[in-house]
Amino acid sequence: MAFTNEQLERYSRHIILKEVGAKGQKKLLNAKVLIIGAGGLGSPVALYLAAAGVGTIGIADADDVDLSNLQRQVIHTTKDVGTPKVESAKKTMEEINPDVKVITYHTFVTSENILDLIKDYDFIIDGTDNFPAKFLINDACVMAKKPFSHAGIIRFQGQLMTYVPGKGPCYRCVFRNPPPKDAVPTCKQAGVIGAMGGVIGSLQAMEAIKYILGQGNLLTGYLLTYNALKMEFRKVKLPSNTDNCPICGKHPTITKLIDYEQAECDGVHL
């Protein structure tokens, strides 16, 4: 596949980098990334991956755009209110870069559909807002041996980690089970600064791009935490012994996917 003149110009700032070059840009154009959640995290991920020329981007979300989303979900605009987020996100990505093929999944992810959703993708982005989904994505990616980027944001804080099969701990190594409903603030009553999605989501996009290019060090074996009020990033080393993990350990006790009960404030209109 040769680049068109338009592509050479569009991706010139990538191609000039020795870590990317024409070869790396082709890898990006041939890559397939699935973004689960078209919200605060998913928006910047989708914008940057589309702009970067990631050739196939899947996006899964069951919700419609709500006015209260627009404070942080920067892929949607005021006139998109009331339309499915996946459609709004697809339209924006295609306007940014016609090279990108966007596949929409207007659905919640569940134990029934997730393995089918992720199977054709090279890298998965967890941009969800609730623990049942985060554990489901982790378990499915461990089972299907898919790399993924986990992230969470709340108030003035964010964190992320990258799972690559065989290269370090999974999310469940760190957090064994989802907290009970409403035990940990996750949602709209806690609030979040919109730019937090931009900071952490952009880092998720960076992890996906590095994974595709095969360049640099990923956040495997580390949890990166960001406290905006203290203006402090910390790269916390995670234990490398994953033997006791119930999903990625030596003797897994979780052998099928679990649909945990969702807290009432999770889900729609976050």
Binding site: N69, A190, K237, L238
Partner: peptide, 29 residues
């Protein structure tokens, strides 16, 4: 190394230990 969640009472710290707290962070939408 992880401290099992049931072992917080029985685990005593030693001089020079490096402790980290990792928090659930659920938001994202």
């Amino acid at each position: 190394e992880f401290v099992e969640s049931g072992a917080f009472e029985s685990t005593t710290l030693k001089d020079g230990d490096v402790v980290e707290f990792l928090y659930f962070m659920g938001g994202g939408q």
